[in-house]
Structure formats: structure tokens, C-alpha cells
Amino acid sequence: MKKLFIVLLAAFVFAVVNPTKSEAKVMYDGAEVVKGQTGKMTFKKDIKVYKKNPNGTFDSLVVKRNNFFKTYDIEKYDDKTFYQMGQYRVQATDLVVFKEVPIKIRSSFYNNPTYIYINRDGITNSYGSYFREQEGYSYISFSDTNNGQKLNFCSGDSDGSYDPCLYYLGTDLKIAETKSRDSNVRYELTKDAGGKSTPLNEVKTETMYAKGTTFSSYGTEVNGYLEVSDSKGYTWLPVDLLKPVGDK
């Protein structure tokens, strides 16, 4: 009995001296930030917001004045901005007060982030373009401005005659984890699917591929898409529609 007491006492002391570690919450502007969050939103008066159901119908929700809500995906097109608030989509108006989470804080949730440009206004050719930091080739830094925090993507060495950096507003970027997979692995499509030039759901399909088409993997997965190639070139396809196959 005495031996059991000593063991329990030792376990108690160990627990006090070495408490179980838990991940610290990420806080900004007095509230917790979660992965995938782009900002928070309040409303100047009670308003009704809507979500579209798969069958084409809409559900509505009344949100109260001054209550804040986390926002996630952002869409910008036709000089309009839309925020995704859970399942509900809200257009930016004078009644909406949006405060972004700085891109540096958003990036901290990812081990190897890929940044995808999601602004369809302005230079439309940039929509869907993506980039990531690569040691020895490019680097990323952040800077605060009157219009929010910017991400600075710089590549190559400059002799001072040009600026080697591109600058992006944080709200123009979606962040996704970059996952490494084995390269040169052969995959087969499990159903017809459209290949895209960038790992973004909203960009248009470039080429349709039939079920059973085989591809070789480049070894990079981003935002639920795998970069693969076939005789026509490279493309991004949904990971969940690809299955590894052996040599045929």
C-alpha cells in the first residue's frame, strides 16, 4: 500500500511539473482566429442573409446588429465583394463592417502554404495564379499598409534596376496547405473530371478527361487537387477522383 501511494504521489508531481501541452489559441482583435478564417464581420443593423441549397432553393438567417461572425472565403468580381459566413454568403455593403485577419496570422496555421490569387477584378489573367516560398529561389515577407496587410513575394536577385517583388493584398489571397506526395506515381480517374490550370475550384475547366484516363503525378497536392500529367501536358485534378494503379 505504501509503495502504491509513492507511485501515485510521483505521478501527481510529474503532472504538476510537466502539464499536458495544448496548442495555444491564436488571438487577434480580442477574438480567437481559426484556420481558414479571413476576418470577422459585424452588421450595423439586423439584416437577413441567405444560403443557396443544392436544389436551387434558398434558406435565410437574420443576423443581429453588432454580433460578430467569422468569415472564410472571399470572392471579388464585377466590383463587388462577397464574404462566406459559414454556409451563408454576404455581399459587402455599407451595412457590413468587415475586419480582416492579417495575412501573416492566417499563414501561421500552415506548414507549407500555397497562396492562390482570388480577385477576378482588375488583371483577370492573374486570377487563380499561385505561388509559394521556395528556399534559394523566392521568399515571402509581410508589410502593414492603410489598406490592410500586404504579402510581398520576391524572387531572384536584383541589381537595383528593377523590383524583384510582387505585392498582394491579403484579402486577394486564398491559402492552402502544400502536401508532398510521391512523384511519378500513376493514377487513374474514377469518373469523368475536368482538369484545371490551377488548384482552385472556381476556375474554369480546361480539358475534360474520361473515367479510366491515367496520369503521372508531379508529387504536389494543393487545396484538394493533385498536379499530374499525361500526353497532353500537365493539369490539376481532384485528389478524391484519382486512385493509384500499377504498371499495365
Rank of each mutant, 00 (worst) to 15 (best):
V101F: 10
P102N: 13
I103C: 02
K104N: 12
K104R: 13
K104Q: 14
K104F: 11
I105P: 00
R106T: 07
F109V: 12
N111S: 13
N112Y: 07
P113G: 04
T114R: 02
Y115M: 06
Y115D: 05
I116D: 00
I116C: 00
Y117F: 12
I118C: 05
R120L: 07
R120Q: 13
R120I: 09
R120W: 09
G122I: 14
G122A: 15
G122M: 12
I123K: 15
N125A: 15
Y127C: 01
S129L: 10
S129W: 08
F131C: 02
R132W: 04
Q134F: 04
E135G: 05
G136F: 11
Y139A: 09
Y139V: 00
I140T: 05
I140M: 11
S141N: 13
S141M: 07
F142Q: 06
S143A: 12
S143Y: 10
S143F: 01
T145A: 03
N146C: 02
N147V: 12
N147L: 08
G148H: 08
K150R: 10
K150A: 02
L151F: 09
N152L: 14
N152A: 15
F153C: 15
C154Y: 15
C154T: 12
G156C: 10
G156A: 09
S158V: 14
S158M: 08
G160W: 03
G160L: 06
G160N: 04
S161W: 05
S161H: 03
S161P: 01
P164A: 14
P164S: 10
C165S: 13
L166T: 11
Y167D: 07
Y168D: 02
Y168G: 01
L169H: 11
L169Y: 13
G170Y: 00
T171L: 10
T171D: 14
T171E: 05
T171S: 12
D172Q: 09
K174V: 10
A176H: 01
E177H: 02
T178Y: 09
T178A: 03
T178K: 02
K179E: 12
S180Y: 15
D182K: 11
D182S: 07
D182C: 00
S183N: 12
V185T: 14
V185K: 11
R186E: 08
R186P: 01
Y187S: 05
Y187W: 06
E188D: 06
T190R: 15
T190H: 09
D192T: 12
A193E: 09
A193L: 02
G194V: 02
G195D: 03
G195M: 01
K196M: 11
T198S: 01
P199Y: 04
P199F: 04
L200Y: 07
L200W: 00
L200D: 06
N201F: 06
E202Y: 13
K204P: 04
T207N: 05
M208Q: 14
A210E: 15
A210N: 14
A210M: 13
G212K: 07
T213L: 09
T213D: 05
S216A: 05
S216T: 14
S216M: 06
G219M: 02
G219W: 05
G219F: 10
G219L: 04
T220P: 04
T220V: 12
E221M: 07
E221F: 00
V222R: 00
V222W: 00
G224F: 01
G224K: 00
G224T: 01
Y225A: 01
Y225V: 11
S229Q: 15
S231P: 03
K232P: 09
